[in-house]
Simulated scan of single mutants.
Amino acid sequence: MVDEAPFRAREKLIEKQRLFQSIQKHTHLKGPVDKITSVAIPLAMAGSSLFLIGRGIYNMSHGIGKKE
């Protein structure tokens, strides 16, 4: 049977494990790009949805954009 090459070098894996185990942040914010996916994108979606809801309420209260 042929042995398959490891996905990542063992030394790199141990180094990454040490790094992530030493950080005292929450688990979902440990990586360098995780702040974008865990914080920025949800905030942008919440902000845009609040804007669209506010615009819809304004348009309904003033009768703007009604279909004849």
Rank of each mutant, 00 (worst) to 15 (best):
S48W: 13
G65I: 06
K30F: 01
K35V: 06
I57N: 03
L50M: 13
K16P: 00
G47H: 00
S38T: 04
K35R: 11
T27K: 12
M1T: 07
D3R: 08
Q24L: 05
L52H: 05
K16V: 07
M45I: 10
V33H: 04
R8N: 09
E68G: 06
L29K: 02
E15G: 02
E4F: 05
N59Q: 12
L19F: 15
Q21R: 13
E15T: 06
T27N: 10
P42K: 04
N59D: 15
E11T: 06
H62N: 15
L43C: 10
Q17T: 07
A5K: 12
Q24M: 02
G65R: 12
S22G: 05
A40H: 14
D34R: 02
Q21A: 13
E4C: 04
V33L: 14
D34P: 00
R8T: 10
R18T: 12
R10N: 09
T37E: 01
T37N: 00
S22N: 10
L13I: 09
A5D: 13
G47S: 07
K25P: 01
S22Q: 09
G31E: 15
K67N: 11
A9L: 13
A46F: 02
S61A: 15
L52V: 07
S38N: 12
F20G: 00
F51G: 05
M45V: 11
Q21K: 11
L52F: 11
K66Y: 06
V33K: 05
L13Y: 06
S38Q: 13
P6F: 03
A9I: 01
K35C: 10
L43S: 07
I57C: 08
I41R: 00
K67Q: 14
D34Y: 02
S61E: 14
I57H: 01
K67V: 09
G47V: 02
D3T: 06
P6L: 07
A40C: 06
R18A: 15
F20I: 04
K12A: 14
K25E: 15
I57Y: 03
G56C: 06
I36C: 03
Q24D: 08
E4P: 00
A46L: 09
H26P: 06
K66I: 08
Q17H: 09
E4L: 11
G54V: 01
G31V: 04
S22P: 03
K67F: 15
E4A: 08
P6T: 04
I23H: 03
A46K: 03
F20N: 05
H28K: 03
Q24H: 05
I53L: 12
A5I: 05
Y58G: 03
H28F: 11
G65Q: 12
A40F: 13
V39N: 02
I57R: 04
H28S: 08
E4T: 06
D3K: 09
A5Y: 09
I64Q: 11
I57E: 08
V39L: 05
F51K: 04
F20A: 02
A9R: 08
T37S: 03
S48Q: 09
P42W: 07
L19R: 11
S48Y: 08
H62V: 14
